[in-house]
Write a protein that binds this DNA or RNA. Structure first.
Lengths: 139, 139
DNA sequence: AAGATTCGTAACTAATTAAGTTACATGAAA
DNA sequence: TTTCATGTAACTTAATTAGTTACGAATCTT
């Protein structure tokens, strides 16, 4: 998401994975590997060769955090109930109740995340940026 | 939780960590280590020596999954936004938006989990148990 | 009092996962 | 044709978690 906001702010030209990696203090290969899912989902595009790199695939207003999360293959909840002893009725009961909760919770979280777009993030950044600018001017 | 339901079903006497470990196919020490948090929260009690072991600390109707989760030190969401480059405004914006979401989401999830009690899990188990009993009888 | 039982905890090992790194083939622009 | 950038495989390193062994402390039975 950090990277994506940078892409919003430099929509006119592509950013290389090396530049993106520098933003978040990591390795270019890690960046490419990570955002490959975003490319597959059409959220970003990549181009090879001279002048190539990464750009947003569409308008930031149409890109929600829910979509980003899904494209990255992230789970919204930190547990997944896999049966370990299929015969145990206690386990079946626990899994059933937990699954009900999980399905409902995931729906809720996804709904919340779908209401936040990249444009919102970029706007928040802009607001902070201008605030700093004004402050600096005043001082 | 698997272990806790077993404790509901055998409230009259204590279960040893060895017995509990057998239920979930793991090691007694792992059990003791894991549920130490439950003991500190008063959800279960432990006693040493002959005839000792683990028991519920109070009525299963008063023990919610939210409390269990908290006592075990589990996180409800699979991410925590720690600033990595404190000066970066992009990062600040991302963290701010994400934190808003996180706080609200955690509140929601905790609220949902607080409505499910150990007694509910045990009841679900009972239901399955009697269903099997009836089925077996019929067949 | 002695012996058996069980928790509490430290210390170590093993397994799994994620991140980082190197290397090189592929494709595109100058 | 040279340079630049992605795509991806393979390997290394780091961090986390689970499992194991060991033993002291507490408690019950005889």
């Amino acid at each position: 998401m950090h990277i994506l906001v940078h892409m919003v702010e430099t929509r006119e030209h592509a950013l290389t994975s090396e530049q993106l990696a520098a933003f978040i203090h990591t390795n270019p290969v890690v960046v490419r590997r990570t955002i490959a899912g975003l490319r597959d989902a059409g959220i970003v595009t990549s181009s090879r060769g001279h002048g190539g790199g990464w750009q947003l695939g569409r308008a930031p207003e149409t890109i929600s955090l829910a979509e980003i999360s899904a494209a990255l293959g992230e789970t919204l909840l930190p547990f997944s109930s896999e049966p370990e002893s299929p015969g145990c009725l206690v386990e079946q009961a626990v899994i059933a109740v937990l699954d009900d909760f999980r399905v409902e919770a995931e729906r809720l979280l996804a709904e919340k995340l779908s209401r936040i777009t990249l444009a919102d993030l970029a706007a928040d950044f802009r607001r902070r940026y201008e605030l700093i600018g004004v402050t600096n001017h005043a001082v």
